[in-house]
Nucleic acid binder design. Structure first.
Lengths: 338, 338
DNA sequence: GCTAAAAATGTCAACGTTGACATTATGCGG
DNA sequence: CCGCATAATGTCAACGTTGACATTTTTAGC
């Protein structure tokens, strides 16, 4: 493999000068620079990052440590966002998946340290709280889609689930609905808590009496092996014998909305005339594919990834972050289902 | 950061001996080994991969180069498979996304070479043919979910779409259907071609007269910005004025099946009594969530990833692969929709 | 055309590790 | 307890790059 000395020899110049060109330092005569660039091209020289790292102790590699993210449909957008932002810099990315396994997580930290990673993005599938083994993170770290109550000093980027949940309910009310049901996410997740509270607050703020029996669980079971039971709930809500039935159903996420939609359709109900459906996440595979298309609150995963990238760059360049939780807004996307 | 010499000094032994312990070489007295291991633990020594690489020129890092995979719901399973297989070895993984951009692809190859990657998995979102700039790949390479007609020497792992497509049609026939429609994938994709041909072959083999007007496109438009139009097609097929209507619809993939299901349901049809629906991919977000749950052909993405990992290990250990395209079977998953 | 400052380039050691080879300790048969 | 094979450990240079510093070349001002 051709190295920096080969290039230097080809041009008749010292290795250091080639190094300067490769690293874009200024003190090189344009003419020399040109000849070196040509030689690099001609010989197919590719700088050896490892050698550089040995010398400088800065790897220019960032890690992404996720629980299930990169193996989960929608939240991969977080990774896309990080990737796109990092592509603008001279860093590259090492992505690793714990699959929720602590042993795996330790192994990954080890790998990260072996490679002298410059910083780590810690991203989760669901918006939730996380805890860590260490007292102080071994590397600069940005939390994405999660926050750590024990480590308030860690910068984190999260969706504003409360605002989004509020907006969903508000929109239903604005459309004239007064009989609004809510099928919740798995209550174990922070996102569920926030959206839930927001739903109740919105109803209360707009003087719509909440109906406890219309607030039903749509997903149950431990994280990683949850089950979606919204279909049965929706069937009961919309097809039961109760005199008064909801005219709108706000859903904890789009997966729930999909089941609710199946239930409504199979009962012969028209959407949104007979029953309006509002989702959450704007998970395109569902929201853009069902008919009618889903009105839903978009989770700004891509944007969150980008912001996390911004924060990482800030941290690495030594800017002392006013460490804080940054909330990214979740805009309501109006389509046909409500 | 503590290095190998610090450990050596702590134990009162040479750096080389510590190196031997770290690399699991045999010629070390158990007692010495133990003392060194304790010192490593005590000092928190983490070997510097970069320094090792500079010396050995073997990075123990593999790259995954994808078009849209890691940003696409189902095919992430390929990555999971590769990850799980590689986790069993002493390698780590660098994942990069081209997003279909050739400039990005070049940039990534550059990064891979800078890091002296040992090998590359080239994975695509759809099963398709790929072409490369180079005459000879710069690194050991395994194709996943794609094959390259120009480079028959590259080992590749692909799903057996033909067999899966055949199976789907055969199952419909076996269930007694004779009026079977087929809503196709984007014909630009190899998978579409294979499933398509298999559908026709299955009908022909079982003496079911094919109806050209019942073979309709479900997805149109360029790759990366395709549009799913299956809803309208299904509506026409199932709700039109034609006397004879299909009793079963085989779909090019689960996204199409989702739209077909919405169409059937909104026409008041019962599934599978009035119309049976068969998908393809077993994309859980759809197949397990719709009601009735989808009968579909599973795409063995996870398994493909693992097999690709096996192949990579074989190639790296110098086994001269009888270079070939390895087809992984696509089993039919029977659920409620057909 | 001389000088001083600035620009361009060069020299050399060091980063942390491991291969090749050298040396020293240990065990064993007699 | 000697000699020899084998096991255990050590020495040292080299991998490709860049930081600190040194030297040479160019430029600008007069």
């Amino acid at each position: 493999m051709v190295n920096i000395k080969d290039v230097a020899a080809e041009v008749g110049v010292s290795a250091k000068t080639v190094s300067r060109v490769v690293n874009g330092e200024s003190a090189v005569k344009p003419q020399t620079r040109k000849r070196i660039e040509e030689a690099i091209e001609k010989l197919g020289y590719v700088p050896n990052q490892a050698a550089r790292l040995v010398r400088t102790n800065r790897s220019r590699v960032l890690g992404i440590l996720t629980d299930f993210v990169s193996t989960t449909p929608y939240s991969v957008e977080i990774i896309r966002g990080i990737q796109d932002r990092i592509a603008e810099t001279d860093h590259s990315l090492l992505i690793a998946n714990t699959a929720g396994d602590p042993a795996m997580e330790r192994r990954i930290w080890q790998t990260f340290r072996e490679h002298r990673i410059d910083g780590v993005f810690y991203a989760t599938m669901y918006h939730r709280h996380v805890a860590f083994d260490f007292d102080h993170p071994p590397l600069p770290m940005i939390l994405v889609n999660c926050s750590s109550p024990d480590h308030p000093e860690l910068p984190s980027v999260v969706p504003d689930d409360y605002e989004g949940g509020y907006e969903a309910a508000r929109y239903a009310i604005e459309q004239g609905h007064r009989a609004i049901a809510y099928i919740t996410l798995n209550p174990l997740i922070l996102a569920a808590e926030l959206r839930d509270a927001a739903f109740r607050a919105a109803l209360s703020d707009h003087h719509v009496p909440p109906q406890e029996k219309w607030i039903r669980p749509g997903i149950v079971g431990e994280i990683g092996k949850e089950e979606v039971v919204a279909f049965a709930e929706a069937l009961a809500l919309l097809g039961g014998k109760a005199k008064k039935k909801p005219t709108a159903i706000v859903c904890g996420n789009d997966e729930i909305a999909l089941q609710v939609l199946c239930a409504a359709l199979s009962l012969g109900l028209r959407i949104p005339q007979d029953v309006a459906i509002i989702g959450y996440d704007d998970f395109h595979v569902i929201s853009m594919l069902v008919e009618p298309k889903l009105t839903t609150v978009a989770l700004p995963y891509y944007e969150m990834g980008r912001r996390a990238g911004d924060n990482m760059m800030a941290v690495l360049s030594g800017a002392d972050m006013i460490s804080r939780v940054e909330k990214i807004p979740c805009p309501l996307v109006k389509r046909a289902s409500a």
